[in-house]
Amino acid sequence: MIKVINPGLQTTIQDYGRIGFYEVGMPPSGAMDKYSYRASNLLVGNDENAAVLEITYMGPVLEFQQDVTVAIAGGEIPPKINDQYVPMWETLEVKAGDVLSFDFVKQGARVYLAVAGGIEVPLIMESRSTYTLCGIGGFEGRPLQAEDHLKIGNANQSKIAIGTRISDELIPVFSKTNEIRVVVGLCSYRLTEESKKRFFSIDWTVTTEANRVGYRFKGERLNFVEREQPFGAGSNPSNVVDLGYPIGSIQVPDGVEPIALLNDAVTGGGYATICTIISTDLDKMAQIKTNEKVRFVAVDINEALEARKLYKDKINQMKKQVLGQIGGINHG
Protein backbone atom coordinates (compact mmCIF):
# COMPACT_ATOMS: atom_id res chain seq x y z
CA MET A 1 0.00 0.00 0.00
CA ILE A 2 0.95 3.60 -0.55
CA LYS A 3 -0.50 6.18 1.81
CA VAL A 4 -1.20 9.66 0.50
CA ILE A 5 -0.03 12.19 3.08
CA ASN A 6 -0.50 15.21 0.80
CA PRO A 7 -2.02 14.82 -2.68
CA GLY A 8 -0.17 17.67 -4.41
CA LEU A 9 -1.96 19.98 -6.83
CA GLN A 10 -3.55 17.32 -8.98
CA THR A 11 -2.39 13.73 -8.86
CA THR A 12 -4.43 11.17 -10.76
CA ILE A 13 -4.14 7.53 -11.64
CA GLN A 14 -3.63 7.07 -15.38
CA ASP A 15 -2.78 4.25 -17.75
CA TYR A 16 -2.50 4.19 -21.56
CA GLY A 17 -6.11 5.34 -21.84
CA ARG A 18 -9.68 4.25 -22.39
CA ILE A 19 -9.46 3.50 -26.10
CA GLY A 20 -12.40 2.53 -28.30
CA PHE A 21 -15.31 4.39 -26.67
CA TYR A 22 -15.05 7.71 -28.50
CA GLU A 23 -18.27 6.89 -30.29
CA VAL A 24 -20.31 7.23 -27.08
CA GLY A 25 -18.54 10.44 -26.16
CA MET A 26 -15.96 8.89 -23.83
CA PRO A 27 -12.59 10.60 -24.20
CA PRO A 28 -9.49 8.40 -23.78
CA SER A 29 -8.10 10.10 -20.67
CA GLY A 30 -4.79 8.33 -19.91
CA ALA A 31 -1.29 9.66 -19.34
CA MET A 32 -0.84 12.95 -21.19
CA ASP A 33 2.89 12.54 -21.85
CA LYS A 34 2.98 8.97 -23.10
CA TYR A 35 6.74 8.92 -23.62
CA SER A 36 7.53 9.67 -19.99
CA TYR A 37 4.71 7.37 -18.91
CA ARG A 38 6.20 4.52 -20.92
CA ALA A 39 9.67 5.21 -19.55
CA SER A 40 8.44 5.05 -15.95
CA ASN A 41 6.65 1.73 -16.51
CA LEU A 42 9.59 0.24 -18.41
CA LEU A 43 12.00 1.08 -15.61
CA VAL A 44 10.01 -0.95 -13.10
CA GLY A 45 9.34 -3.84 -15.51
CA ASN A 46 5.61 -3.20 -15.79
CA ASP A 47 3.49 -4.13 -18.75
CA GLU A 48 2.90 -1.26 -21.15
CA ASN A 49 -0.59 -0.41 -19.95
CA ALA A 50 0.05 -0.43 -16.18
CA ALA A 51 -1.48 2.38 -14.14
CA VAL A 52 0.84 5.05 -12.73
CA LEU A 53 0.43 8.35 -10.91
CA GLU A 54 0.35 11.47 -13.08
CA ILE A 55 1.61 14.36 -11.00
CA THR A 56 0.94 17.95 -12.06
CA TYR A 57 3.05 21.03 -11.19
CA MET A 58 3.24 20.34 -7.43
CA GLY A 59 4.04 16.84 -6.32
CA PRO A 60 2.38 14.80 -3.58
CA VAL A 61 3.87 13.41 -0.38
CA LEU A 62 3.53 9.62 -0.30
CA GLU A 63 4.39 7.11 2.36
CA PHE A 64 5.23 3.61 1.19
CA GLN A 65 4.00 0.86 3.45
CA GLN A 66 5.89 -1.92 1.69
CA ASP A 67 9.22 -2.40 -0.12
CA VAL A 68 8.81 -1.73 -3.81
CA THR A 69 10.68 -0.73 -6.97
CA VAL A 70 9.67 2.65 -8.40
CA ALA A 71 10.66 5.00 -11.23
CA ILE A 72 9.90 8.65 -11.89
CA ALA A 73 10.01 10.17 -15.36
CA GLY A 74 8.71 13.29 -17.08
CA GLY A 75 8.91 17.00 -16.35
CA GLU A 76 11.58 18.06 -13.88
CA ILE A 77 9.79 18.06 -10.53
CA PRO A 78 12.74 16.83 -8.47
CA PRO A 79 11.84 13.80 -6.32
CA LYS A 80 13.17 13.13 -2.83
CA ILE A 81 13.05 10.01 -0.72
CA ASN A 82 13.21 10.79 3.00
CA ASP A 83 14.27 14.32 1.99
CA GLN A 84 17.25 13.13 -0.08
CA TYR A 85 17.16 13.93 -3.78
CA VAL A 86 16.90 10.86 -5.98
CA PRO A 87 17.39 10.67 -9.75
CA MET A 88 14.58 10.64 -12.28
CA TRP A 89 14.58 8.27 -15.30
CA GLU A 90 16.13 5.57 -13.13
CA THR A 91 14.98 2.41 -11.34
CA LEU A 92 14.80 3.16 -7.61
CA GLU A 93 14.22 1.12 -4.52
CA VAL A 94 11.97 2.25 -1.69
CA LYS A 95 11.50 0.55 1.65
CA ALA A 96 8.46 0.31 3.83
CA GLY A 97 8.23 3.56 5.79
CA ASP A 98 10.03 5.66 3.17
CA VAL A 99 8.44 8.99 2.26
CA LEU A 100 8.52 10.26 -1.31
CA SER A 101 8.11 13.99 -1.86
CA PHE A 102 8.88 16.49 -4.61
CA ASP A 103 10.62 19.82 -4.94
CA PHE A 104 9.22 22.75 -6.94
CA VAL A 105 8.79 22.22 -10.66
CA LYS A 106 11.85 23.29 -12.68
CA GLN A 107 10.93 22.33 -16.25
CA GLY A 108 7.87 20.71 -17.76
CA ALA A 109 4.54 20.28 -16.03
CA ARG A 110 3.85 16.60 -15.40
CA VAL A 111 5.82 13.74 -13.95
CA TYR A 112 4.95 10.04 -13.79
CA LEU A 113 5.50 7.74 -10.86
CA ALA A 114 5.40 4.04 -11.68
CA VAL A 115 5.57 1.32 -9.04
CA ALA A 116 6.42 -2.25 -9.93
CA GLY A 117 3.09 -4.02 -10.29
CA GLY A 118 1.17 -0.87 -11.18
CA ILE A 119 -1.43 0.99 -9.13
CA GLU A 120 -4.37 -1.32 -8.60
CA VAL A 121 -7.84 0.15 -9.08
CA PRO A 122 -10.87 -1.35 -10.83
CA LEU A 123 -10.95 -1.40 -14.62
CA ILE A 124 -13.73 0.82 -15.94
CA MET A 125 -14.38 0.29 -19.63
CA GLU A 126 -11.06 -1.53 -19.95
CA SER A 127 -8.98 1.21 -18.36
CA ARG A 128 -7.82 2.43 -14.95
CA SER A 129 -7.46 6.03 -16.11
CA THR A 130 -9.18 8.74 -14.09
CA TYR A 131 -11.77 10.85 -15.92
CA THR A 132 -12.75 13.43 -13.35
CA LEU A 133 -15.54 15.16 -15.30
CA CYS A 134 -17.74 12.07 -15.04
CA GLY A 135 -16.07 10.76 -11.91
CA ILE A 136 -15.01 7.42 -13.34
CA GLY A 137 -11.83 5.36 -13.28
CA GLY A 138 -8.76 5.85 -11.12
CA PHE A 139 -9.27 6.26 -7.39
CA GLU A 140 -13.03 6.77 -6.95
CA GLY A 141 -13.08 8.82 -10.16
CA ARG A 142 -11.20 11.74 -8.64
CA PRO A 143 -7.72 13.14 -8.02
CA LEU A 144 -5.98 11.73 -4.94
CA GLN A 145 -6.71 13.14 -1.51
CA ALA A 146 -4.86 12.94 1.79
CA GLU A 147 -5.43 9.65 3.60
CA ASP A 148 -6.13 7.69 0.41
CA HIS A 149 -4.45 4.28 0.43
CA LEU A 150 -3.32 2.96 -2.95
CA LYS A 151 -2.99 -0.74 -3.61
CA ILE A 152 -0.15 -2.09 -5.68
CA GLY A 153 -1.11 -4.60 -8.39
CA ASN A 154 0.71 -7.36 -10.23
CA ALA A 155 1.16 -5.80 -13.66
CA ASN A 156 4.89 -6.37 -13.76
CA GLN A 157 6.48 -8.66 -16.28
CA SER A 158 10.13 -8.54 -15.41
CA LYS A 159 12.49 -7.54 -12.67
CA ILE A 160 14.65 -4.54 -13.48
CA ALA A 161 17.89 -4.00 -11.60
CA ILE A 162 18.00 -1.02 -9.23
CA GLY A 163 20.02 1.78 -10.84
CA THR A 164 18.96 0.99 -14.40
CA ARG A 165 18.89 4.32 -16.27
CA ILE A 166 17.50 5.76 -19.47
CA SER A 167 20.49 7.33 -21.22
CA ASP A 168 20.62 11.11 -21.50
CA GLU A 169 20.07 11.30 -25.25
CA LEU A 170 16.69 9.62 -24.78
CA ILE A 171 15.55 12.00 -22.04
CA PRO A 172 13.45 14.86 -23.45
CA VAL A 173 14.48 18.43 -22.70
CA PHE A 174 11.59 20.74 -21.80
CA SER A 175 11.61 24.42 -22.60
CA LYS A 176 9.54 27.55 -22.02
CA THR A 177 9.23 28.21 -25.75
CA ASN A 178 7.93 25.39 -27.83
CA GLU A 179 7.22 24.40 -31.38
CA ILE A 180 4.16 22.21 -31.72
CA ARG A 181 3.59 20.51 -35.05
CA VAL A 182 0.09 20.32 -36.48
CA VAL A 183 -1.56 18.98 -39.62
CA VAL A 184 -3.86 21.64 -41.08
CA GLY A 185 -7.25 20.34 -42.15
CA LEU A 186 -10.68 19.52 -40.71
CA CYS A 187 -12.65 22.78 -41.10
CA SER A 188 -9.62 24.98 -41.81
CA TYR A 189 -11.52 26.22 -44.87
CA ARG A 190 -13.48 28.39 -42.43
CA LEU A 191 -10.47 30.62 -41.56
CA THR A 192 -9.45 33.45 -43.86
CA GLU A 193 -6.11 32.97 -45.62
CA GLU A 194 -4.72 35.89 -43.64
CA SER A 195 -5.78 34.35 -40.31
CA LYS A 196 -4.33 30.97 -41.30
CA LYS A 197 -1.00 32.72 -41.91
CA ARG A 198 -1.21 34.62 -38.64
CA PHE A 199 -1.96 31.45 -36.72
CA PHE A 200 1.45 30.11 -37.72
CA SER A 201 3.41 33.32 -37.41
CA ILE A 202 2.81 34.47 -33.85
CA ASP A 203 3.84 33.13 -30.45
CA TRP A 204 0.77 31.99 -28.54
CA THR A 205 0.78 32.26 -24.75
CA VAL A 206 -0.71 29.45 -22.69
CA THR A 207 -3.46 30.87 -20.43
CA THR A 208 -4.38 29.67 -16.94
CA GLU A 209 -6.88 27.36 -18.58
CA ALA A 210 -4.39 24.58 -19.24
CA ASN A 211 -5.33 21.18 -17.93
CA ARG A 212 -6.13 17.62 -18.94
CA VAL A 213 -9.19 18.78 -20.87
CA GLY A 214 -7.30 21.22 -23.03
CA TYR A 215 -5.09 24.27 -23.35
CA ARG A 216 -6.35 27.74 -24.20
CA PHE A 217 -4.01 30.26 -25.84
CA LYS A 218 -3.82 34.04 -25.94
CA GLY A 219 -2.56 35.80 -29.03
CA GLU A 220 -4.70 37.67 -31.46
CA ARG A 221 -8.16 37.42 -32.96
CA LEU A 222 -8.60 35.17 -35.99
CA ASN A 223 -11.24 35.73 -38.62
CA PHE A 224 -13.56 33.41 -40.47
CA VAL A 225 -14.58 33.52 -44.10
CA GLU A 226 -17.91 35.27 -44.37
CA ARG A 227 -20.77 33.05 -45.37
CA GLU A 228 -24.42 32.45 -44.81
CA GLN A 229 -24.31 29.89 -42.00
CA PRO A 230 -25.40 26.41 -43.14
CA PHE A 231 -28.63 25.04 -41.72
CA GLY A 232 -28.23 23.68 -38.21
CA ALA A 233 -24.83 25.24 -37.47
CA GLY A 234 -25.77 28.17 -35.28
CA SER A 235 -25.19 31.83 -35.98
CA ASN A 236 -21.59 32.49 -34.97
CA PRO A 237 -19.14 32.34 -37.91
CA SER A 238 -17.00 29.91 -35.88
CA ASN A 239 -19.97 27.50 -35.60
CA VAL A 240 -20.34 24.40 -37.74
CA VAL A 241 -22.95 21.65 -37.62
CA ASP A 242 -21.80 19.76 -34.53
CA LEU A 243 -19.12 17.25 -35.45
CA GLY A 244 -16.43 15.02 -33.95
CA TYR A 245 -13.27 16.58 -32.52
CA PRO A 246 -10.02 14.64 -32.94
CA ILE A 247 -7.76 14.47 -29.87
CA GLY A 248 -5.27 17.29 -30.30
CA SER A 249 -7.56 19.30 -32.57
CA ILE A 250 -7.55 23.08 -32.27
CA GLN A 251 -10.66 25.25 -32.47
CA VAL A 252 -11.13 28.99 -32.14
CA PRO A 253 -14.56 29.76 -30.65
CA ASP A 254 -15.72 33.15 -31.97
CA GLY A 255 -12.19 33.69 -33.35
CA VAL A 256 -10.91 34.47 -29.83
CA GLU A 257 -8.35 32.29 -28.03
CA PRO A 258 -7.61 28.97 -29.75
CA ILE A 259 -8.21 25.83 -27.67
CA ALA A 260 -6.27 22.58 -28.12
CA LEU A 261 -8.31 19.61 -26.97
CA LEU A 262 -6.42 16.96 -25.01
CA ASN A 263 -6.97 13.64 -23.23
CA ASP A 264 -10.09 14.47 -21.18
CA ALA A 265 -11.66 16.76 -23.78
CA VAL A 266 -15.15 16.84 -25.20
CA THR A 267 -15.38 14.46 -28.16
CA GLY A 268 -17.49 16.69 -30.36
CA GLY A 269 -19.26 19.99 -30.63
CA GLY A 270 -20.16 22.89 -32.84
CA TYR A 271 -16.93 24.85 -33.35
CA ALA A 272 -14.85 24.76 -36.51
CA THR A 273 -11.62 22.82 -35.92
CA ILE A 274 -8.69 24.06 -37.97
CA CYS A 275 -5.78 21.68 -37.39
CA THR A 276 -4.64 18.78 -35.21
CA ILE A 277 -1.50 18.42 -33.10
CA ILE A 278 0.41 15.38 -34.34
CA SER A 279 0.39 12.46 -31.91
CA THR A 280 4.07 12.69 -30.99
CA ASP A 281 3.78 16.36 -30.04
CA LEU A 282 0.86 15.78 -27.68
CA ASP A 283 3.51 14.60 -25.19
CA LYS A 284 5.31 17.90 -25.54
CA MET A 285 2.07 19.84 -25.18
CA ALA A 286 1.42 18.05 -21.88
CA GLN A 287 4.68 19.42 -20.47
CA ILE A 288 3.90 23.08 -21.23
CA LYS A 289 2.76 25.41 -18.45
CA THR A 290 0.65 28.53 -18.13
CA ASN A 291 2.43 31.64 -19.51
CA GLU A 292 4.83 29.60 -21.64
CA LYS A 293 4.93 30.19 -25.39
CA VAL A 294 3.88 27.98 -28.23
CA ARG A 295 4.58 28.42 -31.92
CA PHE A 296 2.50 26.16 -34.15
CA VAL A 297 4.27 24.64 -37.15
CA ALA A 298 2.35 23.14 -40.06
CA VAL A 299 3.53 19.74 -41.29
CA ASP A 300 1.98 17.43 -43.87
CA ILE A 301 0.79 13.91 -43.18
CA ASN A 302 4.05 12.34 -44.37
CA GLU A 303 6.11 14.48 -42.00
CA ALA A 304 3.70 13.54 -39.21
CA LEU A 305 4.17 9.84 -39.98
CA GLU A 306 7.94 10.29 -40.17
CA ALA A 307 7.90 11.98 -36.73
CA ARG A 308 5.86 9.05 -35.47
CA LYS A 309 8.46 6.62 -36.77
CA LEU A 310 11.33 8.47 -35.09
CA TYR A 311 9.34 8.50 -31.87
CA LYS A 312 8.76 4.74 -32.06
CA ASP A 313 12.48 4.22 -32.73
CA LYS A 314 13.28 6.13 -29.55
CA ILE A 315 10.87 4.03 -27.55
CA ASN A 316 12.41 0.88 -28.96
CA GLN A 317 15.87 2.12 -28.02
CA MET A 318 14.61 2.87 -24.55
CA LYS A 319 13.21 -0.67 -24.33
CA LYS A 320 16.48 -2.15 -25.50
CA GLN A 321 18.42 -0.18 -22.91
CA VAL A 322 16.20 -1.21 -20.06
CA LEU A 323 15.18 -4.71 -21.01
CA GLY A 324 18.48 -5.59 -22.71
CA GLN A 325 20.03 -5.72 -19.27
CA ILE A 326 17.89 -8.61 -18.25
CA GLY A 327 18.77 -10.67 -21.29
CA GLY A 328 16.24 -9.89 -23.96
CA ILE A 329 12.64 -9.75 -23.04
CA ASN A 330 9.70 -11.09 -24.98
CA HIS A 331 7.97 -8.04 -26.41
CA GLY A 332 9.05 -5.52 -29.00
Binding site: V182, V183, G185, L186, C187, Y189, P230, F231, G232, A233, V240, V241, L243, G244, P246, I247, G248, S249, T273, T276, I277, I278, S279, I301, A304, L305, A307, R308
Partner: peptide, 21 residues
Protein backbone atom coordinates in the same frame (compact mmCIF):
# COMPACT_ATOMS: atom_id res chain seq x y z
CA UNK B 1 -17.45 15.47 -49.45
CA UNK B 2 -14.26 16.60 -47.73
CA UNK B 3 -11.73 14.01 -46.54
CA UNK B 4 -9.41 15.58 -43.98
CA UNK B 5 -6.53 14.38 -41.82
CA UNK B 6 -7.00 14.94 -38.10
CA UNK B 7 -3.31 14.65 -37.33
CA UNK B 8 -1.82 11.19 -37.88
CA UNK B 9 -4.52 9.24 -35.99
CA UNK B 10 -7.84 10.62 -37.23
CA UNK B 11 -9.66 11.00 -40.53
CA UNK B 12 -12.55 13.45 -40.56
CA UNK B 13 -15.09 13.21 -43.36
CA UNK B 14 -17.52 16.07 -43.86
CA UNK B 15 -20.38 14.87 -46.05
CA UNK B 16 -22.11 18.25 -46.07
CA UNK B 17 -21.80 21.61 -44.33
CA UNK B 18 -25.54 21.76 -43.62
CA UNK B 19 -27.57 19.40 -41.45
CA UNK B 20 -30.24 17.23 -43.01
CA UNK B 21 -31.80 13.88 -42.22
Amino acid sequence: TRYEYGGDEFIFVELAEAMSL
